[in-house]
Amino acid sequence: MFEARLLRGSILKKVLEAIKDLLTQATFDCDDSGIQLQAMDNSHVSLVSLQLRADGFDKYRCDRNISMGMNLNSVAKILKCAGDKDTVTMKAQDNADTVTFVFESPNQEKVSDYEMKLMNLDLEHLGIPETEYSCTIRMPSAEFARICRDLSQFGDSMVIACTKEGVKFSATGEIGSANIKLAQTASVDKEEEAVIIEMDEPVTLTFACQYLNYFTKATSLSPQVQLSMSADVPLVVEYRIQDIGHIRYYLAPKIED
């Protein structure tokens, strides 16, 4: 028996919004530590890694490890039926070929359940080693989303250059060029609003705007985002989900022809 109950059901709604444009299907791997999902987009350029820890749920039971392959479009349709304040419960029997989502309104006056067929997915799983990155940038997630949106008007690619002083986002295209510089915050009053840079070596990398814009669909999950970069390895864009886990996106940098 698998059962995961979340009073803050809107988290699951937001998680689906954060992955459904990038992935069409994915496997939710559940064990007694929680729920994990790892999947690449169709072009194998980016990867989503989601972790929701068992202790972040209001009730969590997983008697046997279970892998549930789901069509994410269908999951998104079902979660759209949940109210923002609803409690969401996912449950499945051992070896079941369906999963059930139960939504309860805050006053318990409305209870809905949606049963969905599971899929057998044979998806590739990548091993991502623990990596020390040359630069990590923490910044407000809304600011990052705004920068990605603004710069994608200028070109398909965005250059992110990180130094000790700050981080510069640039794009160049037919209409001209754009540069946005963010300085490291001098004094941190509210950590959520700060730009904090940890740097061992300066790094400059180029990324496809389209993917960065997909990643920013996770903005509502966290007030802050962390970008981790090293020369010649994929960028990691991480949104921490309060008290329960994180969603990380990996994106291979573009390289010179």
Binding site: M40, S43, H44, V45, S46, L47, L126, G127, I128, P129, S157, T206, A208, V233, P234, Y250, A252, P253, K254, I255, E256, D257
Partner: peptide
């Protein structure tokens, strides 16, 4: 101007 590598070039 630029090539977009896939993730397999970094991770297996």
């Amino acid at each position: 101007c630029c090539i977009q590598p896939i993730l397999h070039q970094y991770y297996i």
